[in-house]
């Protein structure tokens, strides 16, 4: 087991700072998720840890050893690609054995390890098939298997669930997390999907334009965002931002409910909401409207348990509990503690 230390790491592509002076300390055995919109540098950061990309500046330590000049095979890492990158001309068994062959293991030892890994992922009966004969979920397991047999110190996963259909994704997420708990290895996981990030990560690193915006547990980055980028990137729908006396007031749609819904002794901030449209989504209702006259669109997310009648075009009193309010600097977007 080993953690990963990243110091002042930068990667420049021509005019673009893909990764811009990133410091990051990944703990041993931790499931760390790099989250951000496309182009934020999360994949470049992962590829630098893997050794597929050479940093422009900075240092990478894996298990305490300086690794930013070492070739990928010397780093003790394994990587799972978004497309799984299986060898199409090799059977499942020969895919899984490839890193072991490259490592010069004996045939008997290789067979034993392949069998062990295949059993762990329940793919023993596919061993003689070719990747093209497998479904997306099965291919993903083969890719994980191939990563596992190398017994790496760190697993690097690049959007491994992105190519699965939505139905499979929940299952695969659960499987992935159980797998990590079982092997107790450090995992660095790249995704742009906040649901995956929140569900899988011990900690989440939110990135934007090459820089780390916030590092924290899913709870911390969701409830306690450091700026408007993190606040609006996480959450579905995103946090509402309302300009008020030179500051930005932020509140999550699920905290924004009709006044009648709250208890009498709760400290509330009330807003008159001009309801423009109501969206019925089964488990929730989204109410679109504006507060304070010409203000920006805000969204209220009402769970099905809130039965209050809401008519489009009407004006209603909505409220947010004081404890759920966040204040941001209107100019910089940085969080203001009050």
């Amino acid at each position: 087991m080993a953690g990963v230390e990243i110091r002042h790491l930068s990667k420049r592509f021509a005019q673009l700072n893909a990764v811009d002076d990133v410091d990051l300390s990944i703990r041993e055995g931790e499931f760390l998720v790099l989250l951000g919109p496309s182009g934020c540098g999360k994949t470049t950061l992962l590829r630098m840890i893997a050794g597929l990309e050479r940093p422009t500046a900075g240092e990478i330590f894996i298990g305490g050893e300086r690794m930013d000049d070492a070739p990928p095979r010397a780093r003790g890492i394994a990587m799972v690609f978004q497309s799984y990158a299986l060898y199409p001309h090799r059977t499942v068994a020969r895919n899984i054995s490839f890193p072991l062959e490259a490592h010069g293991l004996e045939r008997a030892a290789i067979d034993e390890k392949v069998r062990w890994a295949a059993e762990m992922f329940g793919i023993t009966r596919y061993l003689d098939r070719y990747p093209r004969q497998l479904s997306g979920g099965e291919r993903q397991r083969v890719a994980l298997c191939r990563a596992l047999v190398r017994d790496p110190k760190v697993f690097l996963l690049d959007e491994p669930l992105a190519n699965l259909d939505a139905k499979l994704r929940n299952m695969a997420r659960d499987e992935l997390k159980r797998f990590q708990r079982q092997v107790k290895r450090t995992v660095v996981y790249v995704t742009h999907d906040q649901v995956e990030a929140m569900g899988l990560g011990d900690r989440i690193v939110v990135m934007d334009r090459g820089k780390v915006r916030q590092v924290g547990t899913p709870h911390e980055v969701y409830e306690d965002p450091v700026d408007t980028f993190v606040a609006t990137f996480l959450g579905q729908p995103p946090m509402n931002l309302v300009e008020l006396q030179g500051a930005l007031l932020g509140f999550r749609p699920e905290h924004f409910l009709p006044v009648a819904h709250f208890g009498a002794n709760e400290a509330l901030r009330t807003f008159p909401l001009s309801v423009r449209r109501v969206e019925y989504l089964g488990s929730d209702r989204y109410v679109y409207g504006s507060v304070g006259g010409a203000g920006a669109t805000v969204i209220a997310k009402l769970p099905a348990t809130v039965a209050t009648e809401i008519a489009e075009g009407s004006d209603m009193e909505f409220a947010v509990p004081e404890r759920a309010l966040c204040y941001f600097d209107a100019a910089t977007g940085a969080r203001q503690r009050r």
Binding site: A50, G51, L52, P72, R73, I77, A78, M79, F81, Q82, S83, A85, L86, Y87, P88, F98, P99, E101, A102, H103, R146, R150
Partner: peptide, 18 residues
Amino acid sequence: LPQDVMEAAIVDGAGFWR
């Protein structure tokens, strides 16, 4: 050639000839 397959081979520790 699929670039990620070639990169997978690099990460898997295969040298030039392999």
